[in-house]
């Protein structure tokens, strides 16, 4: 091959690799844009919530003081009967969440311990998919079940139980959060190394002592994180409460009363015809912002606990 043709071939090669590099660069940019959609989403959520919430508080009828301390919430009422204390919605949410956690946490943790430590591989392989199905049942279906099955059952046992009440909603929601608690807890218990368990066995501990006094404490950060995540899911759950707990904001801790939660108010305000820019539609955003801040704080706390307190095994 002559010197010239060699040089020409080299030039073509360089051109090719430059083109290839440019192509790769373009692809890289496109992929980066795809990844940044989630950042844009976060900012869009924050912008949408805060701009309308600021407009809500700018309204002369609304004061910060009333919002945080008032005990009546009636923004969808005619103008002269409106009240803007968010407490009834927060208390309603707490009622449902309390029942849900009362049911969901022990059941979730118990089933996690059984599936992680006692079940045979075959039992685990059969039951885990069923728990996944439970986690995947649409919440509107769970709401139907709470309203038509659980409530009618409970009304025979609990006197004075309203048709819409936080007890049935919370009970069913407890089962909704069970798979969240159990799957994360199972993961953290499985991460406890074999050597630690065997050390305990060598000291004469029985199987349940190893589980209760070694595995569970070692996995505690994951278990607590799963509890907090489950709480955040219970607070943000919408359809079960919208159908089974009612849409009447009431400041009460009586678990038989019809109540409203933050999420069920959002549904109520969105499905009624609130004209855009009206105080009712802005109240929806203010409640949404409150809900967003609470769940975000819980999610961040859950993540922090995993990172800060996770046992590290070298």
């Amino acid at each position: 091959m002559s010197q010239a043709s060699k040089r020409a071939a080299e030039a073509i090669g360089i051109q090719r690799s430059v083109r290839r590099n440019l192509g790769d660069q373009a692809i890289r940019v496109v992929l980066f844009l795809a990844a940044s959609v989630s950042v844009v989403t976060t900012f869009a959520v924050i912008y949408a919530l805060s701009s309308e919430t600021i407009a809500f508080f700018a309204d002369p009828a609304v004061t910060f003081r009333e919002f945080f301390t008032g005990t009546r919430w009636t923004p969808l009422f005619p103008e002269n009967q409106q009240a803007f204390g968010i407490a009834p919605l927060v208390v309603g949410t707490l009622n449902v969440t309390f029942v849900a956690l009362l049911v969901g946490l022990p059941l979730g943790l118990g089933s996690a311990i059984y599936l992680s430590e006692f079940a045979t591989a075959r039992v685990r392989r059969t039951i885990m998919p069923i728990l996944e199905v439970l986690a995947g049942i649409p919440t509107v279906v769970l709401g139907y079940f709470a309203l038509f099955f659980v409530t009618s059952l409970l009304r025979e046992v609990i006197p004075g139980l309203n048709l819409f009440n936080p007890t049935s909603a919370g009970l069913v929601m407890g089962f909704m959060i069970l798979p969240t608690v159990s799957s994360i807890s199972i993961d953290s218990m499985q991460a406890v190394p074999r050597a630690i368990r065997e050390g305990a066995y060598a000291l004469g501990a029985s199987r349940y002592e190893v589980v209760l006094k070694v595995v569970v404490p070692a996995a505690l950060s994951g278990i607590v994180a799963s509890f907090i995540l489950a709480m955040s899911r219970a607070i943000g759950e919408t359809m079960i409460v919208a159908l089974a707990a009612g849409q009447k904001p009431t400041f009460t801790f009586d678990l038989r009363e019809t109540i409203a939660t933050m999420t069920s108010f959002i549904v109520q305000a969105a499905t009624g015809d609130q004209p855009m820019g009206s105080i009712g539609s802005r109240a929806l955003y203010a409640v949404g912002a409150t809900l967003f801040v609470i769940t975000l704080a819980l999610n961040l706390a859950s993540g922090q606990i995993v990172r800060r307190f996770a046992e590290r095994y070298e």
């Binding site: 949404g288 967003f292 769940t295």
Partner: peptide, 23 residues
Amino acid sequence: IELNIRNLAGVPSVVYGILGLYA
């Protein structure tokens, strides 16, 4: 970016509804 994805996974679905309504 990773922090955003993790947090978005925990945002209640009804909040996405509010975003959709607004945006």
